[in-house]
């Protein structure tokens, strides 16, 4: 879509664009280019000499079992976060769409965790489940569960998934609710007159019509699990125990900042960029085709 009526000026549009373009160039294109450039180089331990090594950093990454394990951890983590977050939010949204009374109150009470920082969400859940003092830990131990996420990798994973899902439910809920409210009532009424019960109406009409929203949320949630959950992980498990919650972003950060491996970390950045670009392309492709039925 283009405007028919436009203004004419030789310099004004450039002046208006200048701030945004300047910031984008300095803090976006320059670093992104540098990440790719560093990823082809090897630095000695003191950062004095650099040497062009081609794809050696990438080759080293894919030969590194830790990196491959981090891929696996990230996959498990993002599937759990996206799956649980979407399922729970859909259930709540369908219920909120159904009730006539108190819908606004429920909505207000469900959306606020969106405003909580991921790191704070991590701290809250880590406190509930703290191995020695946590209130939930106390209940679990009473029931014979040996809960200690500092020791057990799968429990650490469960903890970061819970904290991440808790923060993301509100976002998914709002989108599902908006999607549900845009479905024409007449469709559902027609099905009801034909004798379809609530469950059948949901699976044959509502759920298929929600598929664009669901797909959109799937991509957004995967991106969220990949990147925004950094705060959750850093504030709770810090990738541990062992490497049980060492997701890709955390490893990129760890290798670059804590281990000072500039080349390796940059190569990881470049790979992450490729993953995000791929996800975005997939999303645009499907959104254009409008997933339905």
């Amino acid at each position: 879509m283009e405007k028919r009526v436009v203004f004419r000026s030789r310099w004004l549009p450039y002046a208006l664009l200048a701030p945004q373009i300047a910031v984008t160039l300095i803090f976006f294109f320059l670093p992104a280019g540098q990440a790719v450039w560093f990823s082809f180089q090897l630095q000695d331990a003191f950062g004095l000499k650099t040497q062009f090594v081609g794809l050696a950093n990438y080759a080293a990454l894919f030969a590194d079992s830790n990196y491959l394990a981090s891929f696996k951890v990230t996959a498990v983590f993002s599937v759990l976060v996206a799956g649980a977050g979407i399922a729970i939010a859909l259930l709540l949204a369908v219920m909120a769409d159904r009730v006539a009374k108190g819908a606004l109150a429920y909505k207000t009470l469900l959306i606020w965790p969106y405003a909580v920082a991921p790191a704070v969400a991590g701290v809250l859940w880590a406190f509930l489940f703290a191995p020695s003092i946590g209130i939930v830990t106390y209940v679990l131990k009473k029931n014979g569960v040996d809960w200690n996420w500092v020791m057990h990798g799968d429990q650490a994973m469960l903890l970061v998934v819970m904290a991440s899902v808790w923060k993301q439910i509100s976002y998914n809920f709002l989108f599902f609710l908006a999607g549900l409210q845009s479905i024409p009532r007449s469709l559902i009424e027609a099905a009801a007159i034909d004798g379809a019960g609530p469950a059948r109406r949901f699976w044959t009409i509502v759920f298929p019509l929600l598929s664009p929203t669901t797909f959109f949320l799937l991509v957004v949630n995967i991106v969220y699990a990949f990147f925004d959950t950094f705060g959750v992980i850093d504030a709770t498990t810090q990738g541990g125990p062992g490497a049980a919650t060492h997701i890709l972003v955390y490893k990129t950060y760890y290798d670059g900042v804590k281990a000072a491996d500039l080349g390796g970390s940059s190569a990881q950045s470049a790979i992450l960029m490729l993953i995000v670009i791929a996800l975005t392309v997939v999303q645009f492709r499907f959104v254009e085709r409008k997933v339905q039925y």
């Binding site: 992104a32 972003v249 950060y253 900042v257 992450l272 975005t280």
Partner: peptide
């Protein structure tokens, strides 16, 4: 509201930043 050379380029330069969160390019 303006037509000028490089308009498309400016548009795409901004558009591409939509895709990459800070977390991806931390160190540089």
């Amino acid at each position: 509201y303006f037509r000028f050379p490089l308009r498309k380029l400016a548009f795409w330069m901004i558009f591409i930043t939509l895709m990459l969160p800070v977390e991806v390019r931390i160190i540089p």
